[in-house]
């Protein structure tokens, strides 16, 4: 599928957001997906041309990140978290049920049925930073919290039937192509949809309110004199097997 001139212009526009244009590549590939439904050879060529890098280099990037798809995905891309916590909490069973229900394997698009108004693709995904809502399912990268196999099936059935489905912490679901356009940095005006936070996010705050627990008043005083104030001491205090940059002992 060739890249239309409006898309091409928008790809150029993305590259211009950054001090060095190659920085635009990740959002540019999101835009290619939004326009073409997947990363295409033509999209790779257009990015390479705009950024003045080789197509092999663009391919290297496009195949590194898992959100870039080299096969067409559905109108709604369903991701079931099967990282340990969600898997244990039911993600594995949800994923199995959806595979069976949609008759697809991982990262595949279900065959459309007569009368369907949308297609569904299914993928098992890694931790999506919503563990307090486990088991979690993402549809076009919107949260669907606290799922069960039954709720998951009903979500995909509703989507296929063209019924509106809302994210538990966001707007009515948009299509995958529309979502990819937001990831490319083009605002869709839906930021004000949905709640501030889901219920689990607020449990702690509610308990604090009930107990009148607050942060100290501004005049509270303490000192951090025991916190390292030299580089070497900081290196020793920090977790040495993480965040290597701070912890490598420099020879200087």
């Amino acid at each position: 599928m060739s890249i239309e001139s409006q898309t091409y212009d928008e790809l150029v526009e993305i590259s211009q957001r950054y001090p060095e244009k190659r920085s635009g590549l990740l959002p540019m590939l999101h835009l290619v997906q939004s326009a073409s439904g997947q990363v295409t050879a033509e999209g790779i060529k257009a990015c390479a041309e705009i950024l003045e890098i080789s197509e092999a280099e663009v391919s290297g990037v496009a195949t590194f990140y898992t959100m870039y798809k080299r096969r067409p995905v559905g109108d709604y891309h369903v991701g079931v978290c099967t990282n340990t916590l969600c898997a244990v909490m039911g993600g594995d069973l949800i994923f199995e049920r959806l595979k069976d229900h949609l008759d697809v394997g991982n990262d595949e698009t279900a065959d459309g049925r007569p009368g369907d108004s949308a297609t569904i693709s299914l993928e098992h995904i890694e931790c999506n930073a919503a563990c307090d809502y486990a088991p979690v399912m993402m549809v076009n990268w919107e949260f669907l919290d606290n799922q069960t196999p039954e709720s998951a099936v009903s979500v995909v059935d509703d989507l296929r039937a063209g019924k509106p489905v809302h994210s538990t912490r966001g707007p009515k679901l948009v299509t995958w192509k529309e979502a990819e356009r937001v990831l490319a940095g083009f605002n869709d005006g839906l930021a004000d949809e949905g709640p501030s936070a889901g219920p689990a996010s607020l449990v702690g705050l509610k308990i604090a309110r009930e107990n009148s627990w607050t942060a100290p008043a501004s005049n509270a005083a303490g000192t951090a004199t025991a916190v390292a104030d030299t580089k070497q001491a900081a290196v020793e205090q920090a977790d040495t097997s993480r965040a290597e940059s701070e912890t490598l002992a420099e020879e200087s």
Partner: peptide
């Protein structure tokens, strides 16, 4: 200065590759 081969894919599947239809 001919970066027509590149690392593609990731992790254990990482390999040397070319872009579709663009040889080294």
């Amino acid at each position: 200065g001919d970066p027509f081969i590149a690392l593609v894919e990731r992790g254990a599947q990482q390999q040397i590759g070319i872009a579709e239809g663009v040889e080294f």
